[in-house]
Simulated assay, not measured.
Amino acid sequence: MGAVHVRMDDEGLTISNPGGLMDGVTLANLLTTEPRPRNRTLADAMKRIGVVERSGRGVDKIYRGMLRFGRPEPDYRRTDATSVILRLATTDADEAFLKRVVEEEGRRGSALPIDSLIALAALRGLKRLTTEELAIHIQREPAQAKRTLEALVEAGLAQAHGTTRGRTYTLAVGVYTAEGGKAAYTRQMGFSNLQHEQLVLSYVRQHGAIRRAEVIELCRLSEGQAKDLLKRMKMNELLLLEGAGRTAAYRIGPKV
């Protein structure tokens, strides 16, 4: 048996446990694989005498303890064949984020699922997510990632953008409750609008014109969002409208 090393520095707490991961456990399934104790008899005995509540649930507790307070998720990336190495960042807790999580847990009368906490953390860090991207974070299928994100939308914690095929998600404005948070949300959405405009203009330059259906597909927007984008670009003379109805198309405007 080797020694467990615990080291604290200015950036975080590092715990190194000898032995590597159990057979069948990888960094890609750490959250979802069935528990595999190194010594099943010892694990069962510890559970029976009440020292532990459930065997194999330590990783979930570590994730929940970090993410619920708005801190970065636990970092196992330095783990190798000989040691499991866990890094926990010691950044300050995000009190506004914690308050919003506590409010939601109080409303539903239960703790937020770990997948939801991971999704919220990913949205805070990456600003915008697809179901495929979240599936990697929660180590589940895209269908489960979609259910998690749609549940957050229903709870008012996330906001969906675009159609089912190209749907993306951001944090809802209500989550940005800290000082300066609303400004951060406005900046985020403003950047998205500018990006959409540039995508549309680039497409028109390459193909000569663009239709609303093509904007929906290109920018991953809903029909209403695409309509508003084109209307705004037309008013700003970035685009010119030709035709009407199904034949309507937009070309480069005089201000470009």
Rank of each mutant, 00 (worst) to 15 (best):
Q206G: 10
Y203R: 00
G208F: 13
Q195E: 14
L199S: 01
E214K: 07
L199I: 03
E197D: 05
I210L: 11
R205D: 08
L218H: 05
R205G: 12
Q198S: 10
Q206F: 13
E217M: 01
R205C: 10
V215F: 02
R212L: 14
A209L: 11
G208T: 06
L218Q: 02
S202G: 06
N193C: 07
I216V: 15
E217L: 01
L201W: 01
H207R: 12
N193S: 13
R211K: 06
R211C: 05
E197T: 14
A209D: 12
S192N: 12
L221H: 04
R220V: 07
S192Y: 09
L221M: 05
C219Y: 03
I210M: 12
V215A: 08
I210Y: 05
A213E: 15
I210V: 13
E197Y: 05
R220Y: 07
V204H: 02
H207G: 07
E217R: 06
V200M: 09
L194D: 13
S202I: 00
L221V: 03
V204L: 02
E197V: 13
H207P: 05
G208W: 12
L199W: 02
S192M: 12
I210F: 09
G208Y: 12
L218Y: 07
L199G: 00
S202N: 07
R205N: 14
H196D: 15
G208A: 08
C219N: 09
A213Y: 00
L199Y: 04
A213T: 13
L194C: 11
N193F: 10
R212D: 10
E197G: 14
L194T: 08
A213F: 03
Q195K: 11
E214M: 00
E217G: 05
C219T: 09
I210A: 11
R205H: 10
E214R: 01
Q195M: 15
H196I: 04
R205P: 09
C219P: 11
L194Q: 15
Y203Q: 00
V200I: 11
I216F: 02
S202C: 03
E214V: 03
V204I: 06
L221A: 03
Q206V: 08
A213M: 04
A213L: 10
V204W: 05
Q195S: 13
R212F: 01
L199R: 08
R220K: 11
S192G: 12
L201P: 03
L218T: 06
R211D: 00
V200F: 03
E197N: 06
L199D: 03
Y203E: 00
H196C: 08
L199C: 03
H196A: 11
G208N: 06
L218G: 02
E214Y: 02
Q206R: 15
Q195T: 13
S202P: 03
Y203G: 02
A213G: 14
L218N: 02
Q195C: 13
L221K: 12
R220C: 11
S202R: 01
R212T: 06
L194P: 14
S202Y: 04
L218V: 04
L201G: 05
E217S: 12
G208I: 07
S192P: 07
V204A: 08
Q206S: 14
E197H: 05
S202W: 00
V204C: 01
I216R: 07
I210Q: 08
Y203P: 05
R205E: 12
R212W: 01
L221C: 04
C219L: 05
N193A: 15
N193K: 13
L221T: 01
H207S: 11
R220W: 08
Q195I: 09
H196P: 08
H207L: 04
Y203V: 00
L201T: 06
I210C: 08
